[in-house]
């Protein structure tokens, strides 16, 4: 296999307790730690392992977003990606347009495999990979926890509601990864130094011949409704009584 493209989205770190701004215009991002979307880190780890086994020649990390996403791409390069592409856009970009950007990069780079996260933990959309596969007219293997590549086919284990589904897809294909696929490596200091010299191409979204899709507009944000304060009981007997009082036993 030739090249693998990996999507790296810059998102609010998963440890941050996200708060809605008081004016409802969005969530608080000032001074908040930003990271690579956790699923994307796993996608990258998998791509690196495939390359290091000799099953791919090059791993290219791609982010679509603000110029700050260079940080996440540099981290991806430090993990071991060969090069990075940032498609810059000041505004956030909707999933279908992101999929179109990937499509145009696939055409430029002739990639054989695109590894994405199963969802970005900001919008929780879980749609970009499936859309890309549709635009490309190629297979999709979503929510993957295991990926084996042999020649021009991939055997993928998918985590679905009823258990584990195993599918076989012809390459090129899009695979979206779930958390149990692997344990991403830690970045070491010398790797960070080396990553500074690796190529990071910056493109403007409007330089690519990509038509912007009509976004689903987010007009207002509110905090989730809070549950009423509960009670602490002392022992099993009181727990059973409390459940009986609620008609639950």
């Amino acid at each position: 296999m030739d090249k693998i493209l990996v999507g790296l989205k810059r998102v609010v770190d998963y440890n941050v307790r996200v708060r809605v701004r008081s004016d409802g215009s969005g969530v608080e991002t000032d001074g908040v730690k930003m990271s690579i979307n956790p699923f994307d880190e796993i996608a990258l780890e998998e791509a690196l392992r495939i390359r290091d086994r000799g099953d791919a020649s090059e791993v290219i990390v791609v982010s679509i977003g603000s110029s700050d996403a260079q940080q996440q791409l540099r981290t991806g390069l430090a993990m071991g990606a060969d090069r990075a592409i940032l498609v810059e856009s000041a505004e956030s970009v909707d999933p279908l347009t992101v999929a179109r950007v990937f499509m145009s990069l696939i055409e430029r780079e002739t990639a054989d495999l695109v590894l994405l996260g199963k969802q970005a933990i900001d919008g929780d959309n879980s749609q970009t990979g499936q859309m890309l596969a549709a635009l490309w007219g190629r297979p999709q293997a979503t929510f993957a926890s295991k990926l084996d590549i042999e020649g021009s086919t991939a055997t993928v284990t998918r985590e679905i509601d009823s258990g584990l589904e195993i599918v076989e897809v012809d390459l090129p294909a899009v695979v979206t990864v779930d958390l149990r696929m692997n344990e991403p490596r830690y970045v070491k200091l010398p790797d960070i130094m080396k990553a500074k010299k690796k190529p990071l191409d910056m493109l403007a979204l409007n330089e690519l011949n990509v038509e912007q899709a009509a976004a689903i507009r987010e007009v207002r944000f509110e905090p989730p409704s809070e549950r009423e304060k509960g009670v602490i009981v002392d022992d099993v007997a009181s727990l059973v009584t409390a459940l009986k009082d609620k008609g639950l036993l």
């Binding site: 909707d94 999933p95 279908l96 999929a99 919008g123 929780d124 959309n125 879980s126 749609q127 970009t128 990979g129 499936q130 859309m131 890309l132 596969a133 549709a134 635009l135 999709q140 979503t142 929510f143 998918r158 985590e159 679905i160 509601d161 899709a213 009509a214 976004a215 689903i216």
Partner: peptide, 23 residues
């Protein structure tokens, strides 16, 4: 928005040229 729908619906959306409203 089960794994069945999350897998399928975005592929339909893209074939129809629209974004998906998830969940």
């Amino acid at each position: 928005s089960t794994t069945f729908g999350r897998d399928l619906m975005p592929r339909i959306a893209a074939l129809l040229g629209v974004n998906q409203v998830s969940d």
